[in-house]
Each structure stands twice: as structure tokens, then as C-alpha cells.
Amino acid sequence: MKNYFQNIWQSITTLLIGLGITIKHMFKARKGNVTLQYPEEKWPRPERNIGFDPKNYNIIRSKLHVDIDDCIGCRKCERACPVGCIKIDALKVPKETDLGLTSSGTTKRLLISRFDIDMTECMFCNLCTYPCPEDCIFMTGGPNSEKQPLDYEYSQYDRSRLIFKFANVTKNDIRRITTAPPVQQEIL
């Protein structure tokens, strides 16, 4: 009998303690700590407001971006990718052709005819960005905001549109540059 009432007493007290905590939380809630109606309203700056300056981020994971003008076609990123979502075609050009310099002063020797990144396959491991000798492949935003602003809203209606094509040469360009001397060769 005593046990019976003790049980009831314990249930009531522990429930009230829990209720007290929830009530305390209800009044203590941080101002503005409410759900954001996302597509209509966003945080004032692109990154989530988590109390840290995005400049202090070590790195960010978001959409991959390539500065194709800096790419020398070394394919290091392609080899580092565990899922194989980067596909590069680099064409050999005749020696006389001048493809220009990258921003760090390296001579470009290969014509990038294809640089596709399939963001449906990408697993955001960031392994492709480390070996790049020209720092031309990176994830947008965060510490890279100056190079490319954060882009996380790239959803599409069709899957094929998530394959981002970065190469900016046309077929005519390829024919013009590579056919000057008769030798045309694709390196693998």
C-alpha cells in the first residue's frame, strides 16, 4: 500500500520537475530562435548564422567550382576523386600555339576541351581540391567567397542539368587550334 502511493508521488514530482524545465525553456528561448521560412526568408549573409565568422572557416563544403582559365589540365583532381565524378579531356596542341598563362604564371600546354563535374555523384569529400597545383578547383563560399560567392541553391528540375560543364572552348575553337599542323592527338 505504501509502495503504491509512493509510486504515484514519484510520478507526479518527476513529471512536475520535467514540466518546470520545459516552462523555463519556453521563457528562456533566445530571441529570434524560431524556424526560418526558408525560401521566402534567408539569413542576411549566405552562410548559416552559427556564431562564427565565415572568414574563420578552415574550409567549406558546397558546390564545386573551377576557374577554367587557370586549369592546366594535369588531371590530378580527376585521379583524386573516389567516385569519379570529374571528367577531363585535354588535347595536345602544336608547340607554336600560345594558350596563355595561368594567374600564377604557369604556361598552359593543353587545351581543355571537356571539364565536367557531376554534382549528383559528388560526395563532398573535398579530396579533389588539395592536389590542384593552381588552386583552380575549389568549393564555393566560406574562405573562398572572394573567388566565388557561396552557391548552395543549385537544385534543378532535371538530373542532367546537375552535370556542370566548365570547359569554355567551342568545337570550332578546337578545330582551329589543333588542326594547324596535321598531328592531332588525344592523350589519355
Binding site: 552559427i50 562564427f52 578552415n58 574550409i59 560526395m123 563532398f124 573535398n126 568549393m139
Partner: peptide, 11 residues
């Protein structure tokens, strides 16, 4: 997230 950019799968 501030350390390695990711929140769940860090590498």
C-alpha cells in the same frame, strides 16, 4: 563545421 567544413561526413 568551422574546422573541416562538413557537419556529418568529415574526411
Amino acid at each position: 563545421e568551422i574546422t573541416c567544413g562538413a557537419r556529418l561526413l568529415y574526411n
